[in-house]
Amino acid sequence: MRKVDARAKVSRRVFLQGSAAAMPAVAAGVSIDAASAWAQDAKNLSPNTMATLARMARDIYPHDRLADVYYVKAVAGYDDKAGQDVAFRKLVETGVAQLDASAQQRHKCPYLLVAWETDRVALLQGVEQGALFKKLHGDLLVTLYNNKEVWPKFGYEGSSADKGGYISRGFNDIDWLPQV
């Protein structure tokens, strides 16, 4: 049966315009690190806050098949929003500060530097009724899963009418079912 090519395809358009998720300059190869250029470039939130948001995003919806860049893109819009909305900025900064405080208490380091995902998830469970977690958890459903660049990595092909549908592209090509 016809399978979907999940390899990353970096088009010229992506380099020029960034992704649909509206991050001006997130190139392939970024990582979740406060010292990295994308976090340093944030205008309204601190590099630690930006990197913490991306780490939280990865810990909320961990997909080993997705590189860090997709999580970075998924939270990138928060910097602009924080510049336009004081209450939102406070919500983000307070939420990250709380998470860092509980990380310091349990692990003597900020959330970002807690080494094991299991330990970070335990910290997230302590804040999952909080405003920042709820906001991020809800927003990621769109900013992460509605990014067309991640679809092929899950074997999802997106728009089909423009390709003539699946009538000649494998709508019934399953070949492993037992004969009944």
Partner: peptide
């Protein structure tokens, strides 16, 4: 349903690896 709606509707409110490993199986 497509991947975006699967993420929204499979188990609303869920997070973590139990949820994401299900989404990882989308093509299957």
């Amino acid at each position: 349903i497509g991947l975006p709606f699967m993420a929204a509707f499979l188990d609303p409110g869920a997070w973590g690896r139990s949820f994401t490993s299900a989404i990882d199986g989308y093509a299957n």
